[in-house]
Amino acid sequence: MNFDFLSPVSDLVLAHNELLPVQALGRKLKIHSKQQGVPDLDGVQLAILGVLETRNDVNHIGEDFSLNEIRKSFYALFPGSWNTTIADLGDINKGESVEDTYFALKTTITILVQKGIIPIIIGGSQDLTYANYRAYDDIIPMVNIVNVDAKFDLGDSAKPIKNNSFVGKIILDQPFNLFNYSAIGYQTYFNSQEEIDLMERLYFDAYRLGEVSNDITVVEPIMRDANIVSIDLGAVKSSEVSLSQKMSPNGLDGKEVCAISRYAGISNKVTSFGLWEYKPSKDDEITSMLISQIIWYFIEGVNYRVKDDDFKDENNYQKFITLIEDQDLVFYKSVKTGRWWIEIPFLNEMNNKLKRHTLLPCMHQDYVDACNNIIPERWYKAFQKNCV
């Protein structure tokens, strides 16, 4: 197993770990250490992976950072009643160039995902999501990305990649494997009208901060259709984080970002989860603890995954059909979990890359709307996207 790119968890953290109660999370992890090397990954379902790269941050001033404080906070938490085995693989250090770091991250994620292990990536700048996306080139034909962020990060894709323009690169760089991009918690005043219009034209999903805070459950069906989840810590309001992390007085609070993380974990499709834009400072305890709790809730979600999207057996679901403007809308409701899907019928005849997107996760409210002659917005966008 080629994990040459990984450096072990620091002895400082491991010494701290030895002082924790035996029930603590840190005592139950398989940890990459200098003494023991990379742990055996047989039976591992989740792997924590640090990436110490910030050179493509538009505000980069050459500072180095470590993830020691996050590990100390995370190791000290107690696990839920989980049945998953978790490894901490240590960190990917900065390469000679940023491209080297991208290559190391891409290679490592590809190996993990192919082994059925979900990487939980903690990193520097969010442009590393591009390397995360590229890791899927040889794994699945089309990828859905969900970005929890105050900004869309579309940027000017003609310029070199930065942490505020990586989504533009993902959209325009070959091979074109992006099927859908969803932004959760965006704040309008941080995004130019051109970017907002582009999101509309590409039929991507975008949920404003107010919409998400008003009803956090809107996030669940979006996560259920995601392969990659990328969380920018800048989406969290400044009162929840330490001094150097502060970005905006408005944003998600700690409870909301943890709920979003849990929804990501529960999704059967999510196979990689990234937390980006961590900026350590001297008063760092609160940010590292928040990140630890976000990771904790993601793992909690993974432990509660239920295979409820098997529609081959009629006993597994109920089917509902409504008629809107000469269009039959077909809904499925899982008997096991009560979760809803809507069929995208025009894909049935098309033998293309999008075959697996025939059923789109939705909410019960979408069915209620359809009964009242209102076309569900996500269904409409998926329909338009495939008419292009």
Score class of each variant (00 low, 15 high):
residue 104 A to Q: 08
residue 147 N to I: 05
residue 355 K to G: 11
residue 285 E to N: 04
residue 256 E to N: 08
residue 28 K to V: 05
residue 2 N to S: 09
residue 378 R to Y: 06
residue 29 L to C: 13
residue 243 L to C: 00
residue 141 P to S: 11
residue 379 W to H: 10
residue 99 E to R: 12
residue 55 R to N: 14
residue 250 N to W: 07
residue 352 N to I: 07
residue 114 Q to R: 15
residue 187 Q to T: 08
residue 167 V to D: 00
residue 28 K to Q: 14
residue 380 Y to G: 03
residue 248 S to D: 15
residue 383 F to A: 12
residue 160 P to C: 04
residue 188 T to S: 05
residue 64 D to I: 06
residue 328 D to N: 04
residue 272 S to Y: 08
residue 238 S to D: 10
residue 148 V to A: 13
residue 209 L to I: 15
residue 134 R to Y: 05
residue 26 G to C: 11
residue 16 H to V: 05
residue 347 L to R: 14
residue 359 L to F: 13
residue 362 C to F: 01
residue 100 D to E: 15
residue 351 N to Q: 12
residue 346 F to C: 09
residue 255 K to E: 00
residue 104 A to N: 13
residue 46 L to A: 02
residue 198 L to C: 05
residue 183 A to K: 02
residue 116 G to I: 04
residue 135 A to N: 01
residue 286 I to L: 06
residue 11 D to W: 02
residue 349 E to Q: 13
residue 242 S to T: 03
residue 155 G to Q: 11
residue 144 N to I: 05
residue 39 P to Q: 09
residue 233 L to Q: 04
residue 193 Q to I: 12
residue 224 R to A: 10
residue 365 Q to E: 15
residue 95 G to T: 13
residue 226 A to S: 13
residue 141 P to V: 00
residue 229 V to Y: 09
residue 318 Q to H: 12
residue 106 K to I: 04
residue 27 R to P: 06
residue 368 V to D: 14
residue 127 D to F: 14
residue 59 N to F: 06
residue 334 S to H: 11
